[in-house]
Computed example of a mutant assay.
Amino acid sequence: MVTLDAFSNATMVMMYSFLSADARAAGKAAMYTQQIQVTGLPPDGVGAFAYAEQQLIVAPSNDDTTALNPARSVFVGGEIVV
């Protein structure tokens, strides 16, 4: 789930973790959920989900307050697989 917050200039990403791709495809419940904030909003012409996916795998700058969320570091350097 992606939520855009124009007031705070932030994108909130709710991540759902599943045991496996098969479990997700079978409609099983997520094992864990976590919310991760990304600074900024998608630029014109870029979808919210695409923006969130790209921002989650990029290391935030040191002056970015969202960098303090340790959950985000798990995704830095990752690969988007569709």
Rank of each mutant, 00 (worst) to 15 (best):
A26K: 15
S17M: 06
V2L: 09
M1A: 11
T11H: 02
A67H: 06
N69E: 07
Y32I: 00
G27Q: 02
Q55D: 06
E53S: 13
S73M: 10
T66S: 12
G47M: 02
T3Y: 09
Q35E: 12
T33G: 03
A25L: 04
P43V: 12
N62P: 04
L41K: 11
M14N: 14
S17A: 10
Q54V: 05
T39R: 13
T11K: 01
T11P: 03
Q54L: 11
G47I: 01
D5W: 03
A52D: 13
T11Q: 00
D64C: 08
M1Q: 14
S61Y: 09
T65W: 14
A25Y: 02
N69P: 04
E79S: 15
N69K: 10
F7C: 05
M15S: 02
A29W: 04
I36S: 02
A30C: 01
V2N: 09
Y32F: 07
S17G: 04
V76F: 07
M31L: 11
P43L: 10
M15T: 04
A48G: 10
I57A: 08
I80W: 01
S61N: 08
L4Y: 09
A30N: 02
P43S: 05
A21M: 12
Q37D: 07
G47T: 02
V58A: 06
L56Y: 00
D22N: 05
G27Y: 00
K28I: 04
T33I: 09
A50S: 14
V46C: 10
V38N: 00
S20T: 15
Q54G: 06
A59T: 08
D64V: 06
G40I: 08
A25C: 01
P43W: 05
V58G: 04
I80M: 03
L41G: 05
F18K: 08
T33Q: 08
E79Q: 10
D63R: 10
A23C: 07
D63H: 06
R72D: 03
P70S: 09
A23F: 09
V46E: 15
F7L: 13
V81T: 13
T33V: 04
A59S: 08
V13F: 00
M1W: 05
V38K: 00
A71K: 08
A23W: 04
T3M: 14
Q37A: 13
N9S: 12
A21H: 07
S8M: 14
A10Y: 01
A21I: 10
G40L: 10
Q55W: 13
V76D: 14
T33C: 01
F18S: 08
G47H: 01
Y16P: 01
V81N: 12
A30I: 00
M1K: 13
T39F: 08
A6L: 11
T66L: 05
R24A: 02
G40P: 11
F75Q: 02
A67R: 15
G77S: 14
A67E: 07
V13E: 00
K28H: 15
K28S: 14
G45R: 05
G78N: 15
G78K: 12
Q37H: 06
Q55H: 08
E79C: 09
G40Q: 13
V74P: 03
D44I: 07
Q34V: 03
A10M: 14
V74S: 13
I57T: 15
G77H: 03
M14T: 15
N62S: 15
T39I: 13
T66H: 03
M15L: 14
T11C: 01
P43I: 07
T66M: 05
Q34A: 00
A23P: 03
A52C: 07
A25Q: 05
